[in-house]
């Protein structure tokens, strides 16, 4: 498929990490994949009325260079990707700026969360409290 939401998100994450997150480990493919997975999970969790517009805007971002280069964003070289992100980051259209700000903030948070993991207070304990019974409430079938 020419345009791809997943590929566009992955390419955006990859470019922002390489461009902004210069810490040791920024060449780790595994960490970049985990950031992309984090973005996809967040996209699935976001308010439903924002999900479709965000998907459409991301696809529009992917399609943006088609007319000039014949390729979608996710197939561009790293340098050309960076130029497009920078152009949208400073665009006069607020929605374009908002899209890049959205990905900037989540990629950066996802990346640094992986790079500097916080430790749980009590590792190893079961996280979820499990249901044990069909309570004392009356149940009408």
């Amino acid at each position: 498929m020419l345009l791809s939401f997943d590929c566009a998100v992955s390419a955006l994450a990859d470019c922002i990490i390489r461009e902004r997150c210069s810490a040791p480990g920024s060449d780790s493919v595994e960490s970049r994949v985990s950031v992309t997975q984090f973005l996809m999970r967040l996209h699935a969790s976001m308010p439903d009325y924002l999900r479709l517009p965000m998907r459409c805007l991301t696809l529009a971002f992917d399609a943006w260079p088609l007319l000039i280069t014949g390729k979608p964003f996710h197939r561009l070289s790293h340098e050309r990707r960076c130029r497009q992100i920078e152009a949208w980051r400073h665009s006069r259209f607020g929605k374009f700026r908002d899209l890049i700000k959205f990905y900037d903030s989540l990629v950066i948070f996802g990346w640094y969360s992986a790079l500097y993991p916080l430790t749980p207070d009590a590792p190893g304990r079961s996280a979820v409290m499990s249901p044990a019974r069909q309570g004392r409430l009356s149940v009408h079938e």
Binding site: F38, S45, P47, P117, L118, D121, A127
Partner: peptide
Amino acid sequence: DSAPHFSQQEMMQKYRNGGI
């Protein structure tokens, strides 16, 4: 203590809409 405080995991577990 199911996830470190202010962590990515806590956002996904306990924040509405993952915090978005």
